Measured scan of single mutants.
Amino acid sequence: QTIHNGDQTYHYDNPEEAIKVAQKLAKIYNLTVTVKGNTVQVH
């Protein structure tokens, strides 16, 4: 599972963990989380 947060990319073995982290980032920075296959984008 990969999270793209602007210019930063994070890799997680656990998809659920990746989505949790993405949602935390989204709340902190007031962003949107988009899940596309194995990629979670925060923008």
Rank of each mutant, 00 (worst) to 15 (best):
Q1T: 12
Q1P: 12
Q1M: 13
Q1V: 13
T2C: 13
T2Q: 11
I3D: 11
I3V: 12
H4A: 09
H4M: 11
H4R: 07
H4S: 09
H4K: 09
N5G: 10
N5S: 12
N5L: 12
N5H: 12
N5Q: 12
N5Y: 13
N5W: 15
G6E: 08
G6H: 13
G6R: 12
D7Y: 15
D7C: 15
D7H: 15
D7E: 08
D7R: 10
D7W: 15
D7Q: 11
Q8R: 15
Q8P: 06
Q8K: 14
Q8H: 15
T9I: 15
T9C: 15
T9Y: 15
Y10V: 03
Y10R: 03
Y10L: 09
Y10N: 02
Y10M: 05
H11K: 07
H11A: 05
H11V: 14
H11Q: 09
H11N: 05
Y12V: 03
Y12F: 15
Y12W: 03
D13P: 09
D13I: 06
N14Y: 04
N14H: 05
N14R: 04
N14C: 11
N14A: 04
P15G: 04
P15V: 10
P15Q: 08
P15N: 10
E16Q: 07
E16M: 07
E16I: 07
E16P: 02
E16R: 07
E16S: 06
E17Y: 07
E17I: 14
E17H: 06
E17V: 11
E17P: 00
E17L: 10
E17G: 02
A18T: 01
A18H: 00
A18F: 03
A18Q: 01
A18L: 03
A18E: 01
I19M: 12
I19T: 08
K20C: 15
K20N: 06
K20G: 04
K20W: 11
K20R: 13
V21R: 04
V21T: 05
V21S: 07
V21K: 05
A22Y: 03
A22D: 00
A22N: 00
A22S: 03
A22W: 07
Q23A: 10
Q23N: 09
Q23S: 06
Q23D: 11
Q23W: 07
Q23I: 13
K24F: 15
K24T: 13
K24D: 13
K24S: 09
K24G: 06
L25K: 00
L25R: 00
L25A: 01
L25N: 01
L25I: 06
L25W: 06
A26V: 12
A26Y: 06
A26E: 15
A26L: 08
A26G: 08
K27T: 14
K27W: 13
K27Y: 14
K27R: 07
I28A: 05
I28M: 08
I28F: 13
I28W: 14
I28T: 05
I28D: 15
I28P: 02
Y29Q: 09
Y29N: 07
Y29P: 15
N30T: 04
N30I: 04
N30G: 15
N30P: 03
N30H: 11
L31C: 11
L31T: 06
L31D: 02
L31K: 03
L31G: 04
T32E: 06
T32P: 05
T32K: 10
T32N: 09
T32V: 13
V33S: 01
V33G: 00
V33T: 03
V33P: 00
V33I: 08
V33E: 01
V33C: 05
T34V: 08
T34K: 04
T34E: 05
V35P: 00
V35F: 02
V35T: 02
V35Q: 03
V35N: 01
V35D: 00
K36Q: 11
K36A: 08
K36S: 13
K36V: 14
G37P: 01
G37K: 02
G37N: 05
G37Y: 04
N38R: 02
N38M: 04
T39E: 05
T39W: 07
T39V: 11
T39R: 04
V40M: 03
V40R: 00
V40N: 00
Q41K: 11
Q41H: 14
Q41Y: 15
Q41A: 06
Q41N: 07
V42C: 07
V42S: 00
V42K: 01
V42L: 05
V42N: 00
V42A: 02
V42T: 03
V42Q: 01
V42E: 00
V42G: 00
V42R: 00
V42F: 03
H43F: 08
H43S: 05
H43R: 07
H43D: 02
